[in-house]
Design a protein around this nucleic acid. Structure first.
Lengths: 132, 132
DNA sequence: GTGTTTGTTATATCTTTAATATAACAGCAA
DNA sequence: TTGCTGTTATATTAAAGATATAACAAACAC
């Protein structure tokens, strides 16, 4: 669990935590069934408050990335059946690409970046991922 | 100037304003030299405070999308020479694609979305855009 | 049993951000 | 002058983010 928090960022800490865990799942550094540290332990490791970690875990659960077991704590459990996922991605891309387009970044440039990122996320495995 | 603000969104109003104007530039509905409404008028149109619009304009100026003339007000003026643009785009894509990847959205799916969005942004013109 | 750790909930406090409300100023144009 | 522009200043309200304690029930080790 390598978690890097930028305390000078304008991004909320709990949001950075969510992002890093989700990227960890995509990169297959975190797999289905893997347990996350307890809220108290992770908070202590990073040097933040317990409730900040708890909020991140709560959001991750609501968005279908982890399940919480009273005894085992938070466990990676990705729910791939989110119907709005494609629409949400498109809306997010719309803003990013608008900014890029103003900077004369081409369609081909974006495709290259997408490929590079998928390479990062698939480097440890070649087949399916994030399934059941 | 079609501006749509979602007052129930978790996105700040001034941020929604920035995004919409930037997307307007990318879609060529706003072109270099076009004037934006005065902060007072746009605030009145949308039904928000003058300072909220002013903050949006200030951010847009800092990020190189508009220039502000004391007499003419805010004018579209895109500065394409932002060296970090590519790195910033990649960092943003990394998070988006991580989420998408967990939902089993493929590299090809993302490419399709990117193409669709570039179609939207290039529908009114075929050549260069966002230049000097 | 006791003791510890787990997630969870409930307060309370502090800080920052977002948004609003007035107000005033300087520059420019009719 | 009158009216518009951006800009700045100040104040206030509301919400979000983060922290600090504290307590509870469930699970497990002993």
């Amino acid at each position: 669990m390598y978690i890097e928090i930028d305390f000078n960022s304008d991004e909320a800490i709990y949001n950075q935590l969510c992002d890093q865990i989700i990227m960890g799942i995509a990169a297959a550094r975190l797999c289905d069934g893997d347990p996350l540290p307890s809220v108290r332990q992770l908070a202590d490791d990073i040097g933040i408050n317990m409730h900040t970690v708890n909020k991140a875990y709560t959001v991750l659960r609501q968005q279908g990335y982890v399940k919480v077991d009273r005894r085992r704590g938070a466990v990676i459990s990705v729910d791939p059946g989110k119907v709005n996922a494609l629409a949400e991605l498109k809306e997010s891309l719309r803003v990013d690409i608008a900014r890029a387009s103003c900077r004369n970044i081409s369609r081909e440039d974006v495709h290259k970046l997408v490929d590079q990122i998928f390479e990062e996320y698939r480097s440890d495995q070649s087949g399916e991922q994030g399934g059941r």
